[in-house]
């Protein structure tokens, strides 16, 4: 009753009914589910991160001990460094290739729809299935990739079976898989651009590169930054293909934070410590996203 009354009052004031406040009921069911499966686990994790708890024993309050342990845990430190190394490469290559692909798919050509569909198949395919097939292709003796390398006169690689080459190999798979998403986001930006500047530039005799560099790039820059943020977050939390292809190995050579977290929680069942890792991991992701978003706010492309 009182809500209806307020509406009438607003209606009198603005001449137009204000229904905004009545829409909350639509959000409540989803809100409850989000609270139960997303927020509740977060609270639980925060609480558990100050307890020492291995599954099967009673939790014991240890204050900040789990967080202190992170600073002295070399395995965690290496996992952070590896994650940053992997992320830098797994952002750089898909970004460069994705922008190039978007510029290509911006043009109208026969079979464009089909070519674009084929191009996005890697990101839609089930990552586990994809990872298994890559593993077979990486096999040092019987894999098709080493056959292709040696048949053009290049030395064979140990791919994911060697500590040095494993991360570049995983970056290769990640690039294959996620370049399409960068392409789609940037293509969405390119599609919304006005055509007049291009026509004017063409009349002035501008080359394709000049048009890309001085028209497309500045106008589509906000979309590129969105793609950059999304790609960075996804690369930081990459799991499926790493887990399937190398499972953090050989040794711990490709153990990123997410794999380390999995091992701590579900191989050692060290839930308190794993919760602390989760909190730090989330803060890292949040920080990186915030930095990238503030870059977006401050630098519009010159």
């Amino acid at each position: 009753m009182s809500l209806a009354l307020t509406d009438t009052q607003t209606a009198v004031k603005t001449g137009k009914p204000n229904y905004a406040r009545n829409y909350w009921a639509f959000v409540v069911p989803a809100g409850l589910v989000v609270a139960a499966v997303i927020l509740l686990p977060w609270v639980f994790t925060l609480v558990m991160s100050v307890y020492e708890w291995k599954v099967g024993s009673d939790p014991a309050f240890v204050a900040a001990a789990n967080y202190q342990r992170l600073f002295t845990d070399e395995r965690f430190g290496w996992a952070v460094l590896r994650t940053l190394y992997f992320t830098a490469a797994a952002v750089f290559f898909p970004m460069v290739l994705g922008v190039a692909a978007a510029v290509t798919f911006q043009k109208n050509f026969r079979f464009r729809g089909l070519a674009r569909t084929i191009f996005i198949l890697p990101m839609m395919a089930t990552p586990v299935a994809v990872g298994l097939v890559w593993t077979m292709m990486f096999h040092p003796q019987l894999g098709v990739l080493n056959y292709l390398l040696t048949s053009v006169g290049l030395p064979p690689s140990a791919w994911s079976y060697d500590a040095v080459s494993v991360i570049p190999t995983l970056v290769l798979v990640e690039t294959w898989q996620w370049t399409p998403l960068v392409m789609l986001i940037v293509l969405g930006g390119l599609a919304s651009l006005p055509q007049d500047p291009y026509e004017a530039a063409k009349l002035d005799g501008a080359s394709n590169w000049q048009m890309f560099r001085h028209i497309s790039l500045p106008l589509v820059w906000p979309h590129i930054v969105v793609a950059l943020v999304i790609r960075t977050i996804d690369a930081l939390k990459a799991f499926d293909t790493i887990f399937v292809i190398s499972n953090g190995g050989p040794g711990t050579a490709s153990e990123t934070l997410n794999i380390f977290l999995y091992q701590t929680a579900f191989a050692y069942y060290d839930m308190g410590y794993a919760s602390a890792v989760t909190v730090v991991f989330f803060v890292l992701i949040l920080l990186v996203s915030l930095v990238l978003f503030s870059v977006r706010q401050r630098t519009s492309y010159q």
Partner: peptide, 10 residues
């Protein structure tokens, strides 16, 4: 933004 694993422990 959150890694799927972080929901899984709780």
């Amino acid at each position: 933004v959150t890694p799927g694993l972080s929901y899984l422990i709780p």
